[in-house]
């Protein structure tokens, strides 16, 4: 409208194409947005290409050239196992706790307290992972020893707690718990945002039917937030899978695949292993580490994609929207 000479003012419909009139501002903005979107893809592709080219020598190398001397698969397998195990423990511990925290903040705590508490939880996310690592090493690990002893004595028939208990406490269980604390803020923050969005009308409908507060939450808040909870958990899982420093410091690494969570022989995780080995590696060993990094990349990608798939499916079957 600002340029009076254009005939579009009198006959806009004939002039406009399928997308209507193109104004410079629109074009600029859509270009910038599209460029930013593409940039993500370029970066992702760049990382993937780097990983594959650098990992290739290790993938094609003879088995005895790989550190450990038994080939790449044998080298990576315990690391993958350790990574997945630590992240799973973290997720199993953190998700229910995070949901409970989010529910408390959104539906139970008095308003003023809720704000402060939410702020505190967010603050937890700002603590650097090296701090968590040091804290886990210095405080959680020693404190875990009596707990692990008790687990061994009373629940020792479960392979997870078979023992013998590590005397330092630098076990897979402690690594998982420290990871859980690290991913707690992100999961509970996302859950909190989702729970707050629950339509007030639905909550009142449940209350008016004579639901207690917990029944109301079960009828409305949790079903409404289900896909959000899954996304939140997957975000946390992604972080737990890739976490490096805390695991590198806490976990005492020796040995391969074991389900024993409280023993002294634990598999390392991919990220922690790279951090610990990289400075002293050269030649094919570096390629091997990068190959393990490629595996981590694939795992995280798979986790994220399956999470999207789950969320999509949950949404489709859940409600008619």
């Amino acid at each position: 409208m600002s340029s009076p000479s254009t005939p579009t003012v009198t006959a806009p419909r004939k002039q406009a194409g399928r997308n209507g009139v193109q104004r410079p501002g629109d074009r600029l903005f859509s270009g910038a947005a599209r460029g930013s979107g593409l940039l993500i893809l370029v970066i992702l592709a760049g990382v993937a290409i780097f990983l594959i080219t650098e990992a290739w020598p290790a993938i094609t190398a003879p088995a005895d050239a790989i550190p450990g001397g038994e080939g790449l698969a044998a080298y990576v397998a315990p690391l993958v196992f350790g990574t997945v195990l630590a992240a799973t423990i973290a997720l199993v511990v953190a998700t229910p706790l995070a949901i409970a925290i989010a529910l408390f903040i959104t539906h139970y705590a008095p308003k003023r307290m809720a704000q402060g508490l939410g702020y505190l939880v967010d603050l937890l996310a700002a603590v650097p992972s090296i701090i968590y690592g040091l804290w886990g090493f210095q405080v959680v690990a020693p404190a875990s020893v009596p707990v692990a002893r008790w687990l061994e004595e009373n629940l020792g028939f479960i392979p997870l707690f078979a023992g013998p208990t590590s005397s330092t406490g630098r076990t897979m269980l402690v690594a998982g718990v420290v990871l859980a604390i690290m991913i707690l803020p992100i999961i509970s923050a996302v859950c909190r945002e989702v729970f707050i969005q629950t339509p007030r009308l639905n909550q009142e409908a449940a209350l008016a039917l004579g639901a207690t507060r917990w029944e109301m939450i079960r009828m409305t808040v949790l079903p409404f937030g289900r896909s959000g909870i899954i996304s939140a958990a997957m975000l946390g899982l992604g972080r737990a899978l890739g976490e490096t420093m805390a695991v590198a410091i806490v976990l005492s690494v020796s040995g391969g695949i074991t389900l024993n969570l409280i023993g002294s022989g634990n598999p390392s995780t991919i990220a922690a292993n790279i951090a610990l080995q990289f400075p002293e590696s050269s030649g094919i060993a570096v390629n091997t580490l990068i190959a393990s990094g490629l595996v981590l990349f694939v795992i995280t990608l798979a986790v994220n994609m399956s999470a999207r798939w789950i969320v999509k499916r949950a949404n489709r079957s859940g409600d008619g929207r």
Partner: peptide, 29 residues
Amino acid sequence: VDVRRQIGMVFQRPNPFPTMSIYDNVVAG
């Protein structure tokens, strides 16, 4: 909670539970 079980309420805007089927909505209470 007991009061609300005996005195039902219908709201200004329809508010069936979005994640429930018609059947489950009716028997929710």
